[in-house]
Design a protein around this nucleic acid. Sequence first.
RNA 1: GGCGGCGUAGCUCAGCUGGUUAGAGCGUCGGACUCAUAACCCGAAGGUCGGUGGUUCGAGCCCACCCGCCGCUACCA
Length: 505
Amino acid sequence: MRFYVTTPIYYVNDKPHLGHAYTTIAADILARHHRQRGEETFFLTGVDEHATKVWRVAESQGLGAQEYVDQISDAWRSLPPRLNAETDFFIRTSDEGHKAFVREFLQRIYDNGDVYEDVYAGLYCVGCEAFKTEDELVDGKCPLHSTEPEWIEEKNYFFRLSAYQDKLLELYAERPDFVQPPFRFNEVKSFVSGGLRDFSISRAGQPWGIPLPWDEGQVAYVWADALVNYLSALTFARPGEDLREAFWPEVRHLMAQDILRFHCIYWPAMLLSAGYSVPKQIFIHGYLLLDDLKISKSLGNAVDPLELIDTYGADALRFWCARAVSFGQDGSASVSGIADRYERELGNDLGNLLSRTTAMIARYRDGAIPGGPAAGSELEGLIADVHTNVLRDLDGFDITGAVDRIWTLVRHLNRYVTEQAPWTLAKDESKAAELDQVLYDLADGLRVSAIALWAYLPETAPKILEALGQPVAFDWELVEYGRLEPTTSVAAAPPLFPRFEVSAA
RNA sequence: GGCGGCGUAGCUCAGCUGGUUAGAGCGUCGGACUCAUAACCCGAAGGUCGGUGGUUCGAGCCCACCCGCCGCUACCA
């Protein structure tokens, strides 16, 4: 089995905000999970650096476009590591390997007869980087930027998307899970059923971009450039290797709904034209609605994920992203929710569980875990549920449901402590075997929780295993009751998620 | 306008192909415990499941209509 997951390539002229972090975190959770299963996994993210605005901003600062994007790409490149996202490659559209591949890719489409030349004309707002129709304007100006759009009329090359309507509909019919969740797929199908218009794949008179192989005077325009990254990266991410053989078309694209159409319609059509297989799956996640408002730069409610990491840590942010909103749907979330999750769930449920468990093992058994697995325990059943059903959840991109399932185990363990009352057992020598059993089950349940949560909490999970004197390994087959390694060195663990001082809260 | 979705406890949401007293988390109130990061555990209060009318032995779940939100309805990264 192989697993290839992508985020969109982010537009360098943005600042990284929570929405970007959200997609990247989700992709990393999936990637880590599939690595746990022993699958060969590839996780790609990166930046889109070619755009008119980039060039204009660079010029206004007296910089060359390449020089400019070299500077601002760093902010983006550092985002995944800050999130603890383990990417396999970070692509930039100005990478030579990408540029060469795009030219070859577009040439194939061209050779296939799907490209023609036509005149593109319209009112163009530079701020929006979009053409506007008359009825979108207010007093002849762009309502967002209050500037008059420019009338642009130029020769462009067009991709014959209209010729792919039937092929796309066939594809959708053959692949009922091609686009997830289903209601997004419906949007795609109804859109395509309504007929497709060709779209332009080039811009004239632009010095910044990838020149078309058959007309060096024009550069590839957005989708003809950006989308191709998912394929191009495989050709040069590892020098000397062509990863296409392994990972294409085993790809899952993750993104928000704003770019759904381009991924579900344009991209498959271009791939078919160029003679490639289409992606395995496309998953559209929802927006985190902060105070019921979509996160957006223009609304001014953008949240800097790095500030949240500075306060709560990457694990808490990842956990919150996975838990706060059912993945795939829009949902209201509030930044204060991170503080709640941190304290209630990570601190009180999970962190405190480790504290009390290790403290009791140290106190009652001098750091040793003398018990062993007991057949037919309730714990065994819960762990079996996690073992099999988390896989199923995550195969369906349900990162929220999966972590909820794991949390059921964590909650069970806390309840188990109270029910068994080890402090009472400890007072009665004749109950020593019982106490051993309880401590064993707690330690083993915690061990399993840590392994299952590793994809979500890559920083915390190793700490739990270390505190329990367990090898730091996360293979999914270890999510099984009774695989606790004997140990004699458990000491009371320091808090995993310390409370904040009142003044800091 | 067309297509799709949503409206369930104070809040955020689960409720599979219709079937005994409608669930979870948080919040509130009460209790219990002491291993632990004053954490954890138990219990209670709290819902005419948007409205109306149908189908059915029986509907939160099916149908019709209505009300209120939201998404998509083309070239924006």
